[in-house]
């Protein structure tokens, strides 16, 4: 399990390649790699968003993400998990979060990836503050993960 909180922008696909390159034991053992990448939009609730600051609770964030990953992979044969989350100043188009799960077969990878992401959304101590053209505001809540209604 690799959990990383970053203040700098990152390239998710490069991070995934690095994990595979630095863990020779993964090669030939995984047949599925499920990936979720969350990216900052330039709109929210009908407003143009210029930038965002992501605050977190250092120490608790890492502990909580570790607990979430442990809980989500326990019932599944997962080989490796990578979670990267940005904090600090973020711009539209920046990737905010990466969840990457490797397993022998797709079912475990898909389910663990989604479950980790949903638990992160509701439990990991991060808070977004948006900068708009007419001021700032805290994001009050996350959209449900099963909400497929067009915005």
């Amino acid at each position: 399990m690799i959990i990383d909180i970053r203040e700098q922008a990152f390239d998710p696909l490069n991070e995934i390649r690095q994990v595979v390159a630095t863990q020779p034991s993964l090669r030939g053992k995984y047949g599925a790699n499920a990936i979720f990448i969350g990216t900052m939009r330039d709109f929210n609730e009908g407003d143009h968003v210029e930038s965002m600051v992501l605050e977190h609770y250092p120490g608790m964030t890492e502990m909580e993400l570790g607990r979430i990953v442990d809980e989500c992979v326990a019932p599944t044969p997962v080989l490796e998990v990578l979670v990267i989350h940005r904090v600090g100043q973020i711009l539209p188009g920046d990737d905010i979060v990466l969840v990457s799960v490797w397993s022998a077969h797709r079912a475990a990878a898909f389910s663990a990836c989604r479950n980790i992401m949903e638990a992160l959304k509701t439990h990991a101590p991060f808070w977004k503050k948006e900068r708009l053209s007419h001021g700032e505001r805290w994001v009050s809540g996350n959209t449900p993960g099963d909400d497929c209604t067009p915005e």
Partner: peptide
């Protein structure tokens, strides 16, 4: 002891 609003990460 920490107090905070609902989380909004991801």
């Amino acid at each position: 002891v920490a107090f905070f609003p609902p989380v909004t990460g991801g």
